[in-house]
Amino acid sequence: MSLRIGLIGAGGIAREHLSAWRSLGVEVSVFSHAGAAGLIAELGGTEVATLSELLGCADVVDIATPTPTHGDLALAALHAGLPVVCEKPLARTAAEAERVIEAFEAADLPLYPGHVVRYFSEYAAARAAVSAGAIGEVAVQRFTRTGSAPTAAWFHDDAQSGGIVLDQCLHDLDFARWTAGEVATAYAQESMAGGVRSVQVLLAHRSGALSNVCGTWARPGTRFRTTFDIAGTGGVLTHDSAEHPLLQTDFGDQPVAGTGRGLLPAMAYESPFQTELGEFLAALRGGPLPRVGARDGLAAIRIAEAAQCSLVSGQAEPVAGTEVAR
């Protein structure tokens, strides 16, 4: 069955998604307030002028817009009877995400959140090893994520983006929960100076495992880098995206274009966006459920909101929906 994707947005994530959809061989219509024509000229697709036109021609809606618009756009797609792929976070708040999920569940329509880190091969391989018991029971895990601060203004308005916790750390909060289970409490601290912003989050999982998630929006030009260190009763798994490149180059003083690819680190050959959207596509065509569901997206937002509460209160905060029965 040939599906037409209705992509909303033309920013950084929309670019990755459009490129991935094109590689997957599906037709894409794009609606955006700005930038759609340029993106289409480069990557293909068809521009449509209005949201209703998009909802009229699409079989699936892919929401790749700024965070505060996710919830309303998802509901608009729902009212048009269309399944939705939505970039993370699923909505600006947990309450909004919950409303959206309940509406989709009531309508029995698929809703998939774009937690793409689950599709990076190194993270997927780590999760598979942990699931297979390679390191026994997870005791403590550490995740870091560093990159140059996003340039669009809305990212830096916490009312819109939810700040670095909801935008950037959300990836690792979701992954930490995937490997170590539900989170009971979160404690967070944050600092910002000269356009550089760091946040540190400590999680206590219900299993007793502990996680440390660090995120930094660094100065312009900082290379994108992630690390993890997952220690359990049977061993430890480590990874640093800056280590062990498949290809290392040194061109001296000769200027040679960098090998980074958009939002991906250099040398990530299998685009995790393509793996992710391919899995969503297969599910929409009747295949197995994707490795991430809407309720995972909600759980990640709840952990982020506990961390945001902690930033304000200075206290460790319980994560909603996971209170431990006494």
Partner: peptide
């Protein structure tokens, strides 16, 4: 310039008690 190719480099490291060896 100089280019180093290491097509099998992508890996998770660490240590596994089960093998007593590096992961």
């Amino acid at each position: 310039g100089i280019v180093d190719l290491d097509p099998f480099a992508g890996r998770i490291g660490g240590h596994l008690n089960s093998t007593g060896n590096a992961a």
